[in-house]
Amino acid sequence: MICKQAQEDLVGCWGCADELSSEILSHLEECEQCRHEALLLRETQVMLHSLPVERAPEGLTAQIMDRLPHEGQQAGWGERIARWLVPERRMQWGRAAALGAALAIAIAGGVYWYGQEQQTPLQEQVVATTPASETGGDERLAITDAELDELILKHQMLEMSQPLADDVGVGLVVYTSR
């Protein structure tokens, strides 16, 4: 019963512990299955939030419109394929919907597969695109490596004053400029 309640609550808050009652939180401590549910929900939410928002480059619409065959011109290969797929002059809505759905599934599948391939280095992409060595110098970045290294040293000194801080050797792994 408590598992059912916990899983309903977890779905309601995408697995976020902040919004759960203490009863459910203590249940999560004991129940591996519910913990797993919570983790899956949180991962799903993180994945949804981390999907990049793509914008078409400026002028793309105009370029596409320019390339579309004008009336009276010989049909292009795209149109010929479309006619082969949908032979009637007037497209039947059922076939069009089925074709659209198939295309949507194929695109979604492709995007998902691509996302899976890219998921591990997703966060790394930002780092990978910014190192000075790859951008032809530090001048394009808001900060140079030397400046960042100096800030890291200062921050580590502050962190070392925390009671349960790791030793410096661990800090050198956790904080890097790249």
Binding site: V126, T135, L148, T176, R178
Partner: peptide, 12 residues
């Protein structure tokens, strides 16, 4: 003005 720099555990 420069690009955003994301380091390990830092952002500038």
């Amino acid at each position: 003005t420069g690009d955003v720099h994301q380091g390990s555990r830092s952002i500038t």
